[in-house]
Design a protein around this nucleic acid. Structure first.
Lengths: 397, 397
DNA sequence: CACACTAATTACACAGTGTAAATATGCAGG
DNA sequence: CCTGCATATTTACACTGTGTAATTAGTGTG
């Protein structure tokens, strides 16, 4: 972040500035220049351009120090974005803006066994309603994003075994004209935590965002790139115990088989959905017998073991964990570090690895997809998707 | 590889062209332009520049087709490079050129328990001799590289637990003026296989180079970048069996504990070094009883299991394996795919994952380090290391 | 109200590229 | 040996995007 990256395409520079604004939620020019490694001159040029396109707003603020800056730059909330989330239990649609505000929401129940045809019917109808709503208000949706659990795996999606080309074509047709990004739910989650200002994000710099829910998935957040990059990493199906518990993927001994919400729910004896919906205190509200408690710790240990293996392959110095483990008492979470200690090369060392926990977000759908849409919009420099062929190359699986 | 990357720094463009030449071992201009995504005009400008600096040579060749190109461009063998390799058994020094030719070699026995002081003594003396040799001939070493097993781990090097800052300073002092790159032996191995023209490298495109020797290490070769990037990946210490065999790292059940040369040598009942030195037919020359044979297959299965886990985390569609498994009969190597089938999400599928084997190189030291030096020289655009501050950012761990 | 201090804009020079026109080169056929 | 074809190679020019530094603008303090 020290050196100056001299000539880039305008799109890239715009993306850098826009992304900085998305992340900060609003900033003064000198700060932008510092964080993006651009000169104030460049920032000025870019902002002028963006202002003319109504992508940013400047609100007067009294200067924070003598001679200080006077206008706070924020992303314009005139930019309409659509977020759509498919989860195990529902399909949600929302329209909002880069600040994360949701101005329109529709949520439909959806079966976890939704087939592609049913999905298309549900989707098409809701999109019609959604677009009517936006047409009425005269807003043009600049970017849409759809998040789907398990999306993007090379081997195909084991949860929704759909034809992805058909899906992409369907989306392009249905949302005609509106650029759509398809992504994995975990990536959307990561974007949510990273860009929503409600939660203070506990780290900066490259890190792993680990989400333990129905699946166990990681997202590597690469902040050294000019624009943040999120890439999904398959952790849940790492085989950690030969001939271990059977997993829904068909293998045995996967991390997911031990630590997924489903596995945990079974141990505690409640329904999957109940675990998270009880919020912070799901554990406290249960009268746990010692056996259950020990088993949960054991599962956290397993998670740590898998995480350590993952970190051996992807050396990163900080990890943010979200999902049910974040709801566990701190004392129990230590089992994760014990597991880490047994697999991370050199053992667990607090000074080399920062672990933090962040509460999972419940009932916020489709905010995660909305933030992901904002990220995509910003990543493209706020320009039309097709304008630069390079964009295609940067697409993240 | 389709889009054109517009403005880059001159250094980067030079690096791209030079690296292309290193990889191809010589090419015609139209080919270079195509492969580097540069216009012929740019290639022409860059080559003119490089020719003036004596970094490349053009040899007349009859055109391969009417009106075809007439000059084959190669890296100049006037560029002197030094490769230095530290291995379990010896320390070798060499001077050569980008074609891989070694003009000077010195090899000294070295203990696997070499301490840092002893290393420095040995090193300093040999470097003196080496530099005398080059001074006599009036050659100036443009880039040196030193490869060390286990180098670059965040947790420190378990094999040579040295002070790395001290080592870096020592090298800078001893080789004063000559830029030195320090790297892991596996990365040097990967560079060797990739750039030496003797072996036909079996893949193109991003892939994993897996080396199974004293350790089990992977190198991700990223060819989508303008200049190839090699990054080491720790596979050997993935815990694959809870409470499994003890590993030298202190943990239990690491892949290395099952599949390293040491582990295999013990099973077969020969010395570590004997396994590889017998070359291609080390297995055939042994009268294996069924038990030994089964155990070896079992170990290959374990390797496959670990590799599958690694590929879940780093999705890549081809893997090149080198080391003792490459010497095994094809029939036995299938155990690797069986292991892969049990851990790779979606199972092993020939159409999604290409596995290839490449014989380990024996007694070639310090050629691997020499190729790595060539890579570093080329990566820097053939310019002095300090000229562009950005180079520091691109340093690979 | 002037001053001190920093922000924001803008003119200019520079690096690096692609396009396209101009020039060079080799081969085949007479 | 010469001609013409087919492509390679070089070069002039225009364009993009940047940093530097000079200029202009804005704010709080005494």
């Amino acid at each position: 972040m020290l050196a100056r990256f001299t000539p880039r395409s305008r799109r890239e520079t715009r993306a850098t500035v826009l992304e900085n604004l998305l992340r900060s939620g609003g900033a003064f020019r000198p700060t932008i220049a510092r964080e993006t490694n651009l000169t104030e001159a460049s920032v000025s040029r870019i902002l002028t351009e963006l202002r003319n396109e109504n992508l940013i707003q400047e609100t007067r603020q009294s200067a924070p120090y003598p001679g200080g800056p006077t206008a706070l730059v924020t992303l314009s909330n005139n930019v309409a974005l659509a977020g759509i989330e498919l989860s195990n239990s529902r399909l949600s649609f929302g329209i909002g803006d880069p600040s994360g505000a949701l101005n329109y929401v529709e949520r439909l129940p959806a079966s976890p066994h939704l087939d592609q045809g049913e999905f298309e019917r549900l989707f098409a109808e809701s999109v019609r309603t959604m677009r009517d709503w936006s047409a009425h208000r005269g807003t043009v949706i600049r970017q849409a994003a759809l998040s789907i659990p398990g999306y993007g795996r090379a081997a195909g999606n084991p949860i929704y075994p759909w034809d992805m080309d058909r899906l992409r074509n369907f989306l392009a047709d249905t949302l005609d004209g509106v650029p759509v990004a398809l992504t994995n739910s975990v990536i959307a989650q990561a974007a949510f935590h990273r860009y929503s200002n409600t939660t203070k994000y506990p780290v900066s710099g490259d890190h792993l965002f680990l989400f333990v829910g129905h699946g166990v998935a990681g997202v590597i957040v690469d902040e050294s790139a000019p624009v943040d990059a999120f890439s999904a990493v398959e952790i849940g199906h790492m085989v950690i115990e030969r001939d271990g518990l059977p997993c829904r993927c068909g293998h045995k001994g996967c991390v997911e088989a031990y630590t997924s919400l489903r596995a945990i729910a079974k141990i505690i004896g409640v329904a999957d959905s109940a675990v998270l919906s009880r919020g912070d205190s799901f554990i406290e509200t249960l009268v746990l017998d010692q056996g259950v408690h020990d088993t949960l710790r054991e599962r956290l240990f397993t998670l740590g073991l898998g995480l350590g293996n993952a970190l051996n392959l992807h050396p990163l110095s900080s990890v943010v964990i979200s999902g049910w483990p974040s709801l566990m008492p701190e004392e129990d979470r230590k089992a994760i570090t014990e597991g880490l200690n047994d697999s991370l090369l050199g053992g667990f060392d607090e000074s080399r690895l920062a672990l933090s926990f962040i509460a999972p977000s419940i009932g916020n759908d489709p905010r995660a997809a909305l933030y992901y849409a904002a990220y995509c919009f910003v990543r493209g420099g706020g320009l039309d998707a097709k304008a630069d062929p390079r964009a295609a190359l940067e697409e993240i699986a």
